[in-house]
Write a protein that binds this DNA or RNA. Structure first.
Lengths: 159, 159
DNA sequence: ATATATTGTTCATACTATGAATAAAAATCA
DNA sequence: TGATTTTTATTCATAGTATGAACAATATAT
């Protein structure tokens, strides 16, 4: 009666492991497709979209700030800002307090586009929730949070 | 008593929307970090890791097969296979049935590495589950599945 | 005043990926 | 059978994502 207990338990865990592996992979792929879609929709490389999104709530950012927020090298930010300035979506002025620093901000075009993109992103996430029943929504968030912290914990041990 | 009902409801939804947006972004970032870690650990660009993983359960694959499974252009696969052949992890023979086709398979080195990588990937996903209580595991999977299908549904309408 | 640290740029390099052009072989059909 | 079309894979030009070393200019600390 108890003979297979250990084995059965492991079988369940193995099954769940394969399942979570697949589910996470599918979700991540879905997110990548969304990024690709946004890129096309707004006619901007995704890295540049992420750049614009940094200015939600912040008026001025320096290259260093942006590099930190995006978690990329400063040289990458230099390039991205240059591209976005060519597209007249960003502008920069010299910091009157420190001649090394450039203060980067959205142009009015950039501001408008950033708002559009933000609205779009919020909208599709809201659609996600609306696909579920109100009770499901709450639970989905709770378990997603559980999963997220589990992921962070596992990650910590890795690095 | 009923005056603020609609407003309160929207406030909840807005809050949940911001929350799910953030949670998904954090999870995706976590997954990206994991890819980066794997790349370093196994000393292979991640695209090449994905290539090797295609051979779990399949002995021979053609360039076309691989392109379909990876969802990339054939020319990309040609390049990746060439790289992996230089590293002696993949090998190819001509299909005796069709002179256009190359049958690609793992070398014994490649086979060993692919097994190692698979073990690693399974292991970290199992660790994820082990961070949770058994009941939580089941629920997390259920709601992850709910979320995944919601994401697919939203995606369908997009494209 | 000098040494050190910070900020941002340029450049070489590597990885991910696409799509057009092409060559070779196979399948179709006339 | 011979001509046409399709399929398979490669090469090449191009673009996007990203890093890190070397550097110049400026600020800070000693």
């Amino acid at each position: 009666m108890n003979k297979n207990h250990g084995k059965t338990k492991n079988e369940l865990l193995d099954y769940q492991t394969e399942r979570i592996k697949l589910l996470i992979a599918e979700m991540v792929e879905c997110c990548e497709d969304r990024k690709f879609y946004e890129s096309r929709k707004f006619d901007l490389p995704y890295a540049e979209i992420k750049c614009l999104m940094l200015f939600n709530g912040e008026h001025y950012l320096t290259v260093k700030d942006m590099a930190q927020k995006l978690d990329v090298a400063k040289s990458r930010v230099t390039k991205l800002v240059k591209n976005l300035m060519n597209k007249e979506l960003l502008q920069q002025i010299n910091d009157p307090m420190d001649a090394r620093v450039r203060l980067i901000s959205l142009t009015s075009n950039g501001s408008e586009l950033a708002r559009e993109i933000d609205t779009f992103q919020t909208d599709i996430h809201q659609q996600l929730l609306l696909k579920m029943e109100p009770t499901e929504r709450k639970n989905a968030l709770v378990y997603l949070e559980t999963l997220r912290s589990a992921m962070e914990e596992v990650k910590e041990k890795l690095v």
